[in-house]
Amino acid sequence: MSSILSVTDLNVHYGSIHALKGITFEVKEGEIVTLIGANGAGKSTTLNTISGLLKPTSGKVELLGESLMGCPAHKIVEKGMALCPEGRRVFSQLSVRENLEMGAYTRPSSEIEDSLSMVYEQFPRLKERSKQTAGTLSGGEQQMLAMGRALMSKPSLMMLDEPSMGLAPILVEQIFDIIKSLNKAGTTILLVEQNAQMALSIANRAYVLETGKIVISGTGEELLCDEAVRKAYLGG
């Protein structure tokens, strides 16, 4: 399996705060990789840096062997990477359909209809609500919209930042099922979660982030059984 994303010795600062302290990891084609860690560990910082929203102080990010350094955030989508950001960040005053159209902003308009019907098939709820403004959706529906919107760019790598945050258990289940089915359909997934149990159970491989450093890595099962991980993230 070839590596789709590789991150090497990445350092990120917020002013004087050293948020990422030289992290190195990779995601291979077809995998679900998860990055778990406590609040403030640097998970969102990692994803935001990979997607170009934040500039690293040093280090390297490569997508399919091509360096993304110096590439502005809006150019990175075209290269096949989508981020479904923390807190969903749907465009609340745009309609559901317009949100999805924005997801396909970099693609020719002739291809949009196809992707729309694909997303509507995956999320029938969104089809029912296509004319509503996104701000009127429930939290779960907004999460689905954020995921659908990211899918509209037909990414080869989809990154999700805490998609289960603030959702009822039944919805969390549903979101994770969707992530699995997206992966089966060929999308490589980099998943950031605080819900370590769920994330590890669907992940091929996992990394544990602690105050800006990767402290443990292994397969999903290995980490589920790991004594330290159980203590710190799985409630004993």
Partner: peptide, 9 residues
């Protein structure tokens, strides 16, 4: 930020 993630300049 979200607009940039969509590929909007």
């Amino acid at each position: 930020g979200a607009a940039q993630l969509m590929g909007i300049n």
